[in-house]
């Protein structure tokens, strides 16, 4: 399972970077989305994948009896997903406004502020 997830993470990073190297603003945004998914999945995988062992201490015990799944990476991912959702929503509006104002979605045309 770890191997499959690791390959998926690598694939997501590769796809994200490939998309960001394209000239279209929309593809840039898709690339950014894929990058953040890759990071989230990386946290999930790196935190250790354990199946069916809920992190709940049984009644009367002071600590879990067996190895349990670590809930923290999932909490981290949840936070990160919420943040990246908000940021991507902003970025969507931004590229929409940019295309409207500048009349192009080609990143090669966006060099008036460069130096």
């Amino acid at each position: 399972m770890d191997i499959i997830l690791a390959i998926t993470v690598g694939g997501l990073y590769a796809a994200g970077i490939y998309m960001m190297l394209r000239r279209s603003v929309v593809k840039l945004l898709i690339g950014l989305g894929l990058l953040s998914h890759a990071a989230n999945l990386l946290i999930f995988t790196a935190g250790g994948v354990i199946r069916g062992r809920v992190p709940v201490v049984p009644a009367g015990e002071m600590q879990p009896l067996e190895t349990i799944a670590d809930p923290l990476p999932q909490a981290l991912i949840l936070t990160a997903i919420v943040i990246s959702f908000a940021v991507l929503a902003f970025a969507l509006v931004l590229i929409y406004r940019t295309c409207q104002t500048l009349g192009t979605d080609d990143l090669d045309q966006l060099k008036a502020t460069d130096t």
Binding site: L35, A39, L42, I43, A46
Partner: peptide
């Protein structure tokens, strides 16, 4: 995204 990945790896 790099920062987040770094956090994941350092936690692991």
């Amino acid at each position: 995204a790099v920062f987040l990945a770094a956090i994941g790896v350092i936690y692991a």
